[in-house]
Structure formats: structure tokens, C-alpha cells
Amino acid sequence: MMAEKSSIKKYLRGMKFPFCAGCGLFGIVDSFLRAVQELGYKNFKKFVFCSGIGCSSWIPSPFFLADSIHTLHGRSIPVATGIKLRRPDLNVVVFGGDGDLMGIGLGHFMHAARRNLDILVVMSNNMIYGMTGGQVAPTTPFGAITTTTPYGNFEQPFDAASLAVAAGATFSARWTTAHLKELKKTIKIALGLNGFRFIEVVSHCPTGFGRKRGLKTPQEFVDWVRDNAISIGEARKIGKNKQKNKIVIGEFIRKPRLTLIENIYAITREAQKLGKEN
């Protein structure tokens, strides 16, 4: 155990993560680094990380010993697009929160999935805007009390993992920070695939959301997940109506198709022939 711990340290700059005690983001960091290690990467030389603004967006930046671009709120995917298009050889990974990717940055998320841009997006879904103090997000459950829905949320939340599927992602999965083993396995799978890959991690934010929901400790969160999570297989059997207020977990899609990089470079090679003929 000790040996393993120290071996994921090689991916880090050695600075302390600034997350609150009991925050689910610690588990996401750990799962990601272990996945990378188990895949045999000695360092992050072949990786670039992009993130937006929010607690979740601090995961790689500047803590990973890697190239990391901490962009504006919601704009990690466009920046990742520019990087990947010019450096198709690098693994471009985006980290972000549900506010960052499902709120202000949703347009980019949908289009990147449509284009099948070759990036992995890991979204921590703490069901609120964490960094700004627990306001309602596009992922907040109906009826939930937040700092800006003091009488209960009157909107329906997005189902991010399904949105990704609808928009054209080649891979989409959802786990929770109570499923770190499964999460690690899924990250390993996703890092081995091409195209637009999405992993949603329902995450515990004791400070911003847990406080209001009676899920203050990690254990209370784990209990809540255990009581409410159903597998994607089961969810498909019982139908949409009965899934309400459930957390559907598992792999939603794994369906490779030609990627943006493959398509754009094929066209570029053709155009370059024209260029020479001129």
C-alpha cells in the first residue's frame, strides 16, 4: 500500500490539494492517477490537461506534474480542441465540474461530442456550483434546497451521461465517488479508446451541498448512493419513470466511430496534394 501511494506521487508537483475535508474530488484524483499508473505511463509527458473554473477544475492545475491549462469558466473544451487539432499525438484530458461543463460550457461539450473530438472529459457532478458557495446547478435534483433555491429547486436536472450519448460520444459512463474501483477501471478503458469519451462522477461536496441535504460526512454520502444507485442494465429494464431520483451507474455507451482527428487529417492530406499540384 505504501509503495503504491508513493508511486502515484510521481505524477504530482507535491503541492497540497486545496479541497475541503471529505471532498469527493480526492477520490477522483486518486482513481485517475492509479488508472494512469496501471496503464504503465511513467509520467505525463504524453498528456495535456485542460480545465475550466471551479473546485473540480483544480484537479490537474497546477497539481499534476504535467502540462496543464487552466482556462476560463466553461472554456476548457475549446482550448482542448485547439491543442488536440495541432498535437494529435498527445492525450488531451479535460477535468471540470457540472457547472463548468453542463452550465456555462454545455454548448462546447455537445459540439465536441458531435464532432467526436478525441478527448477524455472527466466531470465531477456535485450537483451544485461548489466553488461559489453551493448555488443551484443544471444538475441539481428537483426540489433540492440550495443557496439560490431556498424553497426547493423548481427545475429538472440534466442527465449528463445520457446527453453525451445523444450528442455522439463514443464512450460515456457514470460512477460515483462511492465507486472508486469501478471509476478507475472505467478511466483505464476510456484512456485506451479514441474519440469523445465522457466520464461523469457523482461527487460528494460536504461543504456546498452535503450540508443542506444531510449528507455531511463521506459515510452519509456513501449510504445515500447505496440507497439510490441502480445499474444501467436495471434502469433500462424498469423504464424511465421509475428511474426518477435514482443515480444510474455504469457504462452508457461504447461505440467507436471515425473521430475528428481521423477525419480532419484525411481531408488535410487530400488538400495538401492539391496544394502541391498548384
Partner: peptide, 19 residues
């Protein structure tokens, strides 16, 4: 590349500049 809006356009050139 034609992006989905101007926010994305300038984001993409910033990313590409870092390559």
C-alpha cells in the same frame, strides 16, 4: 475549423497557440 461560436473560436486558437 469553424467552431460553434466566438467563445469557442478564440478558445481554440488559444489552445493551438500553446502547441
Amino acid at each position: 475549423i469553424q467552431m460553434e461560436d466566438e467563445l469557442a473560436s478564440i478558445g481554440a486558437i488559444i489552445g493551438a497557440s500553446w502547441t
